[in-house]
Structures are given as C-alpha cells and as structure tokens.
Simulated scan of single mutants.
Amino acid sequence: MPKINGNEIRPGNVLEHDGGLWVAVKVAHVKPGKGGAFAQVEMKNLRNGSKLNERFRSADKVERVRLEQKDQQFLYETEGMLTFMDATTYEQVELPADLLGDRRPFLQDGMTVTVEYYEEEALSLTLPEKVICTVEDTEPVVKGQTAANSFKPAVLDNGIKITVPPFVGVGEQVVVATETFEYVERA
C-alpha cells in the first residue's frame, strides 16, 4: 500500500491508522504562527463508525488504502441481512442492512449498488444518486398556489417523508436524491 505525507490527505481518502480503517471526512490545513504546519483531519472508522480527530504533520507518513469497488445487484433481505449478487461471477454475498443506515428504504429489488471491499471484507454500500419513488400521500393541489418556493409534505411508497412542489399529486412518480432525501424532479 502506498504511504502518503500527512499534508496530502484529502477528504474521502481511506487510511490505515492505529490498526483500523478510517475515512477522512474533513481536512483543514493549519499554519500556526509558531511551529510547523499540519493537517487537522476528522476521520470516521469504517468498521464501527466511531470518529477521531488527528493531527498529521507533513513529515508524518500514513498508509493510504485503496478499496475495491464492485457493482452488485440486490436480490432480497432476510433477518437484517441483505443478499447481493455479482453480475459477472454470479457469486452471492450477504451484508448487514445497517451498512446503509437511514438510506435503507431507498434500496429496491434488482437495484445495482456499489459495494466497497477491503481484502474480501465489505465496508460500505453506495446507492445510486437518484431513485424513482411513488408518492403515497400528500395534500391536494390548491388552485392558485403559485408561490415560487412553496413545498408541501409527502409520504413516499417506502415510508420516507419529503417535501414536494405543489403540483405533485398522489400516485405520481418522483425522482429523489438518496444522499439528501430531497425531491429532484418528476419521473
């Protein structure tokens, strides 16, 4: 694995530090008036989710880890475990549903997700940026309500609550951003 200097750490880099795998969440380069410059790095553990703030001087060397990314198709869920299949080798793998966290409701049958592996260990799941959902419940359209930024609450078919523009009605399909849980457009 390549070693990089402490001042080369960027957000999103995966590092091996103190016997664990950490992803750099925030990086601030600090140049104090006295002493050498350093990078203040906020890191999140990929295995247990704990957070850590660490200072790295430019002379410090850290291991940068490259994760292998594989596209996998979601098949089914049983007892909190999600089963995925590799589209090229047809191998099936079971991963815990809590890898997705609060984005779990957006996972749909047959959806292709990106699974990141480190030496055969699955560390994270990435959903597509946008998914199509159906509006189950929302307020009826009020005639004459044309304010530019007026949104109304809506419940999607997966139980997620979002806000939608006033012209969206019950039964319509909408595109939702999986990272921000926001309405993007009509499908």
Results as ranks from 00 to 15, higher is better:
E16T: 00
S50I: 09
E63W: 11
I162G: 06
N7W: 05
E179N: 14
G20F: 05
I4M: 05
F151T: 11
H29C: 11
M43C: 08
F84G: 01
R47G: 06
H29S: 07
L107F: 05
V62G: 06
G19D: 14
L125D: 04
G171W: 00
E136F: 12
G101K: 03
A24H: 03
G35A: 04
L123Y: 12
N7A: 05
F151A: 07
V131L: 02
E136L: 10
V176Y: 02
V115C: 11
G19Y: 08
D157S: 14
F84I: 06
G110I: 04
I4P: 06
D137A: 09
C133P: 00
L52F: 08
V113K: 01
L99Q: 14
T88M: 02
R47M: 11
T146P: 03
P165Q: 13
S50P: 01
T146C: 06
Q73D: 09
S150L: 13
E121R: 15
V25R: 02
Y118A: 07
E179Q: 15
T78D: 12
L82K: 06
E185V: 03
V25G: 03
E91C: 01
Q69P: 13
A177R: 13
T114V: 15
R104C: 04
E79R: 15
G144W: 05
V142G: 05
P32G: 09
T138V: 07
V27S: 01
V65G: 13
V93W: 11
A187S: 14
E79Q: 14
A154V: 09
K34V: 09
D60P: 03
P165C: 11
R55I: 00
I9W: 01
R47E: 15
E68P: 02
E54F: 04
N48R: 06
Q40K: 08
C133A: 07
G33H: 11
Q145M: 13
M85Q: 14
V168T: 12
A122L: 00
N48Y: 08
K143W: 01
E79L: 10
V93C: 05
V65L: 03
A148S: 12
T163H: 13
T112H: 06
K51S: 01
T88V: 15
P32C: 02
T114F: 04
E91V: 03
L67Y: 04
R55C: 04
Y183K: 06
A97D: 11
V14S: 11
D60M: 05
E94F: 07
R64Y: 01
M81T: 05
Q40F: 02
E185C: 06
V170H: 08
E121F: 09
L123S: 10
K31Y: 09
A37F: 02
N158A: 07
A28F: 01
V30I: 14
A187H: 09
D102F: 02
P165Y: 10
L52M: 14
N45Y: 01
Q40L: 10
D71Q: 15
M81Y: 04
N53A: 08
V27I: 12
T112E: 04
